[in-house]
Simulated assay, not measured.
Amino acid sequence: MLEVDRLSRAFGGVYAARDVSLAVADGELRGVIGPNGAGKSTLFTMISGHLHPHSGRITLDGQHIDRLPPHRRAQLGIAIVFQGARIFPGMSVLANVAVGATARTRAGAASAVLRLPRHRREERQIFAAAYEALAQVGLADWADRDAEQLPLGQQRRLQLARALTAQPKLLLLDEPASGLRANERRDLAQLIRQLHRGGMTIMLIEHDVSMVTSLADRITVLDLGEVIADGTPDEIRRNPRVISAYLGKGAAA
């Protein structure tokens, strides 16, 4: 589904990503790990289009997308959940989630302003999709509440539901469990596992190595902007370069 070929990006002469290459199969859950500053989030923002690479290619289902803007990539099926909960204040949980379906709209601005039948029909479809996504993440009972009232763990689920309304073929999760309590992390991991089992292709950045190894089919390890390992969770646990750079000497035990 996704192919990243020798992707590079530098900031002030310092490489955040250098010749990063990886391929993600349809239906795969790919973990991406590495120390702070390894280039993980930079990789995700280049895939989603919020940051352009200085060199390299990104291909989605055989189509080169590395020069497309974020909204075009969203229309092609890429959704990203950024690190940290982003909530639109003064809006209900349902309205916050419905925002994620804007990439699917076709009626146009004039139709919206004039409240034409096509716009009203599309609006009903969007809110139906948003409610379905809320049910999928276990937040249907919270639909009419003020989104700002949600606890952090529920806000992360809201973010995930917002991404799901776009019906993505590739879901990018950038540290979704950051700041969550142990029980919230377990619940989130189970939700991600359910989405994966449903056939969704997912890329996951997480500092919680045990969470990633329990979920991922394969793991890519970055260090100083470069790929230092790529393999199954078992292979990654035993890789000497990964142990030295990231996991620590006791990790192979």
Rank of each mutant, 00 (worst) to 15 (best):
A135F: 07
S111V: 02
Q155H: 08
L116Y: 04
Q83T: 07
A182M: 12
R157H: 09
A110M: 11
L152Q: 15
I87S: 00
Q159Y: 00
L94Q: 10
L152H: 10
I87E: 00
E148Y: 07
A112Y: 06
A95N: 09
Q167H: 14
A130M: 02
E148A: 15
A74W: 02
G100K: 00
R181C: 08
K169C: 07
R104G: 05
Q190Y: 06
A107L: 03
L172P: 03
P69R: 00
Q125I: 11
A128Y: 11
Q83D: 05
L139I: 10
A189L: 14
I65P: 05
A128C: 11
I80F: 01
T105Y: 08
P151Q: 07
P168R: 10
G90R: 14
A129D: 09
R104T: 09
M91Q: 13
R72C: 00
G199H: 12
P117I: 04
G198Y: 11
A166Y: 02
P70A: 08
G153N: 11
H64W: 14
L94K: 08
Q149P: 04
G108C: 06
G90K: 06
G179E: 06
R120Q: 14
Q167P: 08
E123P: 10
A166F: 00
D187W: 08
Q154H: 14
Q125K: 14
D174V: 03
R86A: 07
V97R: 02
H196N: 07
R73C: 00
A143Q: 05
G153S: 12
Q136T: 11
A147S: 10
Q154I: 07
R72A: 07
A163V: 12
L116F: 10
P168L: 04
D141V: 11
Q194L: 12
Q83F: 09
G77W: 09
P69A: 00
E122A: 02
D174W: 03
R118N: 11
F127M: 12
V113I: 15
P70C: 11
R73V: 00
A85Y: 01
R185F: 00
G84D: 09
I78D: 01
A133Y: 05
G179N: 14
E184F: 05
D146M: 15
M91V: 05
A74C: 01
L116V: 03
G77H: 04
D146T: 13
G84W: 02
V113G: 04
V99E: 01
A177H: 09
A163L: 10
A110V: 15
L172T: 05
P70Q: 08
Q190K: 14
F127Y: 15
R185M: 14
L188H: 10
T165C: 04
L180Q: 13
E123T: 14
T165A: 02
L94I: 10
G108P: 07
A103C: 12
V97S: 01
G100H: 01
A163E: 06
S92Q: 07
A129G: 08
L76I: 12
P168M: 09
G199W: 12
G77Q: 10
R156S: 05
A130F: 02
L180P: 12
A79R: 00
N183M: 12
A133G: 13
A110S: 14
P151K: 06
Q136D: 13
A163Y: 03
P70S: 04
S111L: 06
R162L: 01
E175L: 08
A135R: 15
E122H: 03
P176Q: 03
E122K: 01
F88W: 05
I80S: 02
A133H: 12
G90D: 06
G199N: 11
R73Q: 01
L180K: 12
E184C: 10
T102S: 12
